[in-house]
């Protein structure tokens, strides 16, 4: 589904990604871990098409298409979804209105009819249940005055609404209390299928107990320096990153 080859990218003359290679098949969940500043959010942003980042080399193929050639909104309509580490506030625009605009543009792109108000509301109610989010939150201006946890939950609600092929969750677990963490993980799990894939960026093994990954990768200085299965996450939790850093410097 997603094939990243030797991806390099910079921002403001500082190269952050130094040759990333990653293969993700439909149905898989990949966890990406790594120390602060190693480039995890940068990778997510480059995949989503954020303009500030300049791709210096490499290729990204998504469902047979050259992802890097697409505009950010086209990528989204093709099925790439990014749950932001820091979701922004949009005053005066309710989540409901925002989602209606987004969903209908995506539907149009897929050759489907836009949803009328009634069907939209029906779909919304269903997804609200899935992530246990309250409608009063969705009536409010998008993310404005939301608590950290509410913002994250709102991201997952949006993911549930848009049903992406590839979801990238950038530290969706940070800021969540234990109950919320379970709810969010549960929501993600319910959306998992043979046809979609998830990239989970996290610092904590705890999330991976709920969203069990097929692979775990360690990103360090803009490169994937180690890959393994979920046991790798446990090892990192126990030992930290120093041994990996040592391995890298020895190599």
């Amino acid at each position: 589904m997603l094939s990243i080859k030797n991806l390099q990218a910079k921002i403001d003359d500082k190269q952050i990604l130094n040759g990333i290679n990653l293969e993700i098949k439909a149905g898989e969940v990949h966890a990406i871990m790594g120390p602060n500043g190693s480039g995890k959010s940068t990778l997510a942003s480059v995949l989503a098409g954020r303009e500030e980042y300049e791709v210096l080399g490499g290729e990204v193929e998504f469902l047979g298409k050259d992802l890097l050639a697409l505009e950010p909104d086209e990528r989204a309509r093709e099925g790439v979804f990014l749950a932001f580490q820091y979701p922004v506030e949009i005053p005066g625009v309710s989540t409901i209105n925002f989602m209606k605009t987004a969903l209908n543009q995506i539907r149009t792109h897929r050759g489907q009819q836009p949803l009328d108000a009634v069907s939209f509301l029906g779909l919304m109610k269903e997804k609200m249940k899935l992530v246990e989010i309250d409608q009063s939150l969705l009536n409010r201006a998008l993310n404005e005055g939301f608590s950290g946890g509410e913002k994250k939950r709102n991201e997952i609600f949006q993911m549930a609404m848009l049903e992406p092929k590839l979801a990238i969750l950038d530290e969706t677990d940070s800021g969540l209390d234990i109950d919320a963490l379970k709810i969010v993980a549960n929501g993600v799990n319910k959306l998992r299928s043979k046809n979609n894939a998830v990239i989970v960026v996290t610092h904590y093994q705890r999330l991976l107990e709920y969203i069990v990954p097929d692979f775990v990768h360690v990103l360090y200085k803009g490169k994937i320096v180690k890959s393994g299965t979920k046991e790798l996450a446990l090892e990192l939790e126990a030992k930290g990153y120093d041994w990996i850093k040592d391995e890298v410097s020895v190599a």
Binding site: D73, A76, L82, F84, P87, V88, I90, F98, M99, L103
Partner: peptide
Amino acid sequence: EDQIFYCLQRGI
């Protein structure tokens, strides 16, 4: 730019 990008990322 962040607000615009947020919208773009949702397919708008």
